[in-house]
């Protein structure tokens, strides 16, 4: 019972702050609502016994990616933001389409039954750092190495793109 109440609180705040992220005029407000959203997603991860992922969510998403966004938003101009319109001219179509898809998914999920609903969830401690590390460094070692190459490409690409051309 208390689990359900906690989950409903997290889900409500996640959906509300997601709507606020895409509707605010000022991008800085959007980034701050995104921060709130990431904290509550970390809360959902804790409810699902994924403590390590909750920590990674907070450290990498809230701590690194979002701060990067905040820096770039502040680097570029925000003073023209209050005059410009926030949505393109097709936004009623997009919003209607979104409502339609959300209603459709809700209907399908509500009418269907999940066999996993009655399944036994993961036991406590089965998804700790030790178990995760053992799986990551044995079975998923090659994807792990590829992920490091992706990070290297991202690092080099960001530096190459954003540096000023001195010779031209």
């Amino acid at each position: 019972m208390i689990n359900k109440a906690i989950f409903i609180y997290f889900a409500a705040v996640i959906l509300l702050s997601a709507v606020l992220v895409i509707t605010r005029k000022n991008p800085i407000h959007s980034v701050l609502f995104m921060l709130l959203l990431f904290f509550h997603i970390a809360g959902v991860f804790v409810v699902l016994n994924a403590e390590f992922l909750a920590a990674v969510q907070l450290i990498v998403y809230a701590g690194a990616i979002l701060i990067l966004y905040l820096f770039v938003v502040m680097l570029l101009n925000v003073e023209t933001e209050s005059k410009a319109s926030r949505a393109n001219r097709y936004w009623p179509w997009a919003a209607g389409f979104g409502l339609l898809v959300a209603a459709e998914i809700a209907l399908l999920v509500a009418r269907g039954t999940f066999p996993l609903d009655t399944a036994q969830p993961m036991r406590l401690g089965a998804s700790g750092v030790k178990e995760l590390g053992i799986v990551l460094y044995t079975r998923y070692l090659v994807p792990f190495e590829i992920a490091s190459i992706i990070l290297l490409v991202g690092l080099v690409g960001a530096v190459m793109l954003a540096k000023k051309r001195s010779s031209e």
Partner: peptide, 23 residues
């Protein structure tokens, strides 16, 4: 699944309707 579908739909609407590239 419902929560994640709702969040995904909000993301799709944001991509389709906003002008600001940050959003």
């Amino acid at each position: 699944v419902m929560l994640s579908a709702g969040l995904f739909t909000i993301g799709v609407v944001g991509v389709l309707s906003r002008r600001n590239i940050f959003i």
